[in-house]
């Protein structure tokens, strides 16, 4: 099976129903994407499929064929992902950090389609990402910070 992961073509030989999560972690050794629940309940495994945030723990690898998979390892190479990571660092969002790959992938997908999300937009996009360290307030603030930086640079271009 051919997969496009972070802009690279990868050939893998796995069962077609194998979730993307385990392909990434156990077959390709890309451990930035985390296992949290296996049931699409916690968001730790979030990656982007053609820019959409998806839960890789319940997405069979067959559903990713022909699409672009983006993971935490490469999100910093996108303009939005870079701003999100910078905002996360500026506000020291992570605590244990285990859920943060998923938080950042969800937040980047949100900001890529909605440059100025409201609190309600943030709630809707982020409610699926659980953080047991309770970094929610900082995640929200960091999304707003990344959004405001996105708009500032946007104005610059205009």
């Amino acid at each position: 099976m051919d997969l496009m992961i972070n802009g690279e073509r990868r050939q893998i030989d796995v069962p077609s129903d194998m979730p993307v999560l385990w392909v990434l972690r156990d077959v390709l050794g890309m451990t930035g994407t985390k296992f949290g629940c296996g049931m699409s309940l916690c968001g730790a495994c979030t990656v982007q499929l053609d820019g959409q945030a998806i839960r890789s723990c319940v997405t069979p690898v067959s559903a990713a064929a022909g699409k672009a998979i983006t993971t935490i390892e490469a999100i910093g190479a996108t303009p939005v992902g870079k701003k999100v990571q910078a905002a996360w660092i500026a506000l020291d969002v992570p605590q244990c950090g285990y859920c943060q790959s998923g938080q950042i992938m969800s937040a980047s997908a949100l900001l890529a389609r909605n440059a100025r999300p409201t609190d309600a937009d943030i709630d809707a996009a982020m409610a699926g990402n659980i953080c047991r360290c309770g970094t929610y307030g900082r995640v929200r603030a960091a999304i707003k910070r990344a959004a405001s930086e996105a708009s500032i640079s946007g104005r610059g271009v205009r």
Partner: peptide
């Protein structure tokens, strides 16, 4: 520990 926790 933040930098390593935002890039996987």
């Amino acid at each position: 520990d933040t930098p390593g926790k935002v890039n996987g």
